[in-house]
């Protein structure tokens, strides 16, 4: 086989590429495209604006105000504790009403004397 140098091969390739098929456009292709375009439903490209449902900001305040009023009312009454379980209120009140609060001093003395019970 005859040898070619790189430049000759490039030139030869360019020549060959010029002989590649130049495809013929099918007859009526553009007309078919335009028929398809015209046949398409012309859809609006703007989405219709849907207004949000009316919203009254002041309505949010009603339950908050009611809750506040109830809190004030209950707080002004002595019966407020009755609305909470004893496990919360009872323990707290017992601690508060203890006349001799535990300081730990008695325990320290007992510990020093070896009474660890």
């Amino acid at each position: 086989m005859e040898k070619f140098d790189s430049n000759q091969m490039d030139a030869a390739l360019d020549k060959l590429l010029k002989h590649a098929t130049d495809p013929a456009i099918p007859e009526g292709a553009e007309a078919r495209l335009m028929a398809a375009i015209r046949g398409m439903e012309q859809q609006p490209n703007v989405v219709k604006f849907q207004p949000r449902p009316k919203f009254h900001r002041w309505a949010v305040g009603i339950p908050l105000a009611a809750s506040l009023a109830l809190g004030i009312y209950l707080g002004s009454k002595d019966t407020f504790d009755a609305y909470f379980p004893d496990s919360i209120i009872g323990g707290t009140t017992a601690d508060l009403s203890d006349s001799a609060p535990s300081t730990g001093l008695d325990d320290a003395e007992s510990y020093a004397e070896g009474d660890l019970t």
Binding site: T21, P23, I25, A29, L33, A36, I37
Partner: peptide
Amino acid sequence: YYKPVYRMVWRMMNGNAETEDVAQEAFV
């Protein structure tokens, strides 16, 4: 622009019969 688009698609699809469909889809 149809001709250059068609020719390019034809070359990419190796002359396949679907060339026209693909070129049309680009314009659509």
